[in-house]
Every structure is written in C-alpha cells, then in structure tokens.
C-alpha cells in the first residue's frame, strides 16, 4: 500500500512493488533452488549451476548406501509422537486453562512460558541429570520384569537416555507451552454455550470432547500441532545430547554427521538429504494452512 502511493503513477508504483517483492522472493528461494538442483545433479558442487547430468542416484544413495531410511524413520516416529502428544495434552490442557477461574491460572500460564524463554542449552545439564536418574530407575525396572534378551530393545523404546521415550518426552515438554497458549486462547473464543448445550443434550464427557469440542477445536489443534511438528522436526540439540546409538539416529544429526564425516564433501548426497528433510515440514504446513487462516483470522465462526 505504501509503495502504491510512492509513485505518482499507480501502475508504475505497482510494478515497482512487484519488482521489489520478486527480488526478495528470489533471494529467499535461491538456497532451496540450489539444494534441489544439486540433489539431482550427478556432479554437484558448492555453486549454483544447471545440472548437466540429471540423476536420482543421490536419493537412492540416501536410502540404499547410507542409513537415511533409519534416520527418516526415527525422525518420523519421534516427531510424530511428539506432535500427537502435544495436540492431546495441549488440547485438554488448553481447554481446562480456558475454562477454569482458578487463582493460579495467570501465574501458571506465565510460568510455563518460561520454558520457552530459557535458552535450551542452559537446560542441558540439569535435564541430563534428571533423565539419567529416571533412566537408571527404568533400567532396574526392565531388568526386573523382562527376560535378559528383551532388555536392550525395550530400553531403546522406554529409555530416558538414548531411547525413544526420553527424547519424545523432552521435545513434547519443550513444545507444550506454546501449544497450551495457542489452544487456551483458541478455546477462549469458543463459547461456553456449546459445552452447556451438549451437557443438556445428555452428552457424556467423552461424547462432549469427541463430538463437540474436538471438531470445534480442529483449527486450533492444527495450528498447535503444526508449530510443534516444525519446531520438533528441526530440533538439533536434544537428539545430539540424548541420542547416541546409530540405530536411533534422527535426520538432523544424520545430516550433520554426514557433513562432517567425509574428507571431500558430497554435495549431491547432502542436498538430497536436505531436500528429504524439508519435505515433511512443507507437507505439514500445506495440510494445516487452511486451519491456520481460521485460527489467526478470528476463531470459529458459527
């Protein structure tokens, strides 16, 4: 708008605006474009160039030669569980926080925000201490109840350190505050009359959640889930600290270690991995987009 008025001639002002916006978009898009081109280039290099030798070899290498499939699988399982947990806990908690009149409501909401405010690296040492303790307890429990040859696989799943459970809980805890805020704010816009109408209609608690609140909350859940997914998918620090087994390696670390590992950097392989790493975020955004407009464009209309 400001640009439109900048020129004496509105058409020229418009053209200027488009030119500038195009330039900015191009500037932002170039890295993605380079990554994509390099990933299908049989002879990729550090510089942006049109591939002479189109190939899918970089992608097959990710899955067949390297452990890309494992990394991808681990990332999907962990981040998928985190997103689901965040949506369930954030939905229930956000609903409760929106409806309660308890005196601790405000203090609690600001307190959980602190989790987001503290830089994560500052949390590493205490977090590691706590999880190590929990892990010890889990180890004793597993030793006590499981046959010896089930112990290691069970700890992969239920271990707090170097296990799925630990990393899932940490990432969930880190994403939950924002989700609670988004959903609390969202439920504030959903009239209490819906709950009460359903109550008078004879719906049980689970029916009210499933048939009324869940459908009404979808936009908010999508927004909260999307932010949790994107943030957890991109998290590098927590997998670095808490995952050590190669079988549990997740994508960002796989990518990072591949970058460090070889003497000559294989740009084709790295960019193929990067492109694969980007796809789920883009897909998640695409799926959640139409709900986001509703959430940040003024709640549910009815």
């Amino acid at each position: 708008m400001a640009l439109r008025h900048a020129g004496a001639n509105p058409a020229r002002g418009n053209a200027m605006a488009y030119a500038i916006l195009s330039l900015i978009s191009a500037y932002c898009a170039v890295p993605f474009f380079w990554a994509f081109l390099a990933s299908v280039d049989g002879n990729a290099s550090l510089f942006l160039k049109w591939p002479e030798d189109w190939t899918a070899a970089n992608y097959t290498k990710v899955f067949l030669v390297e452990d890309g499939a494992t990394w991808f699988f681990n990332s999907v399982v962990v981040v998928g569980c985190v997103t689901l947990l965040v949506m369930v806990l954030g939905g229930l908690g956000g609903y409760a926080l929106s409806r309660t009149q308890a005196w601790w409501k405000r203090p609690f909401l600001y307190l959980i925000l602190l989790i987001r405010v503290v830089p994560p690296p500052a949390l590493i040492v205490p977090l590691y201490k706590v999880l190590l303790l929990a892990n010890g307890a889990m180890q004793s429990l597993m030793r006590a109840v499981l046959p010896a040859d089930w112990y290691r696989p069970a700890m992969r799943i239920f271990g707090f350190v170097d296990g799925y459970l630990g990393i899932i809980l940490i990432l969930t805890a880190m994403q939950l505050p924002l989700a609670l805020w988004i959903l609390k704010t969202f439920f504030d816009t959903v009239s209490k009359d819906y709950d009460e109408a359903a109550l008078l209609d004879g719906a049980s608690l689970t029916q009210r959640i499933r048939l009324v609140m869940l459908p009404l909350a979808l936009p908010g859940l999508a927004a909260a889930g999307l932010f949790a997914f994107i943030s957890a998918w991109g998290d590098f620090l927590m997998p670095l600290i808490f995952i050590s087994s190669p079988e549990l390696q997740m994508l960002p670390l796989g990518l990072f270690r591949a970058f460090l590992r070889v003497n000559t950097v294989d740009y084709g392989f790295l960019t193929a991995l990067a492109v694969l790493y980007m796809i789920p975020s883009v897909v998640a955004f695409g799926l959640a987009r139409r709900f986001l407009v509703q959430t940040f464009g003024g709640g549910v209309k009815g």
Partner: peptide
C-alpha cells in the same frame, strides 16, 4: 445432572454446533 432434569434450554447465542 442437567440432562436428567427433563429440561431443555434455548441459548441466547443459539449454540448450534457449527460443524
């Protein structure tokens, strides 16, 4: 329980389930 009192209520906002 509200549902077992044999009462029905029309709300000012109507509270029709939008979905």
């Amino acid at each position: 329980n509200p549902a077992e009192r044999g009462v029905g209520m029309v709300f000012q906002s109507y509270a029709l389930y939008p979905h």
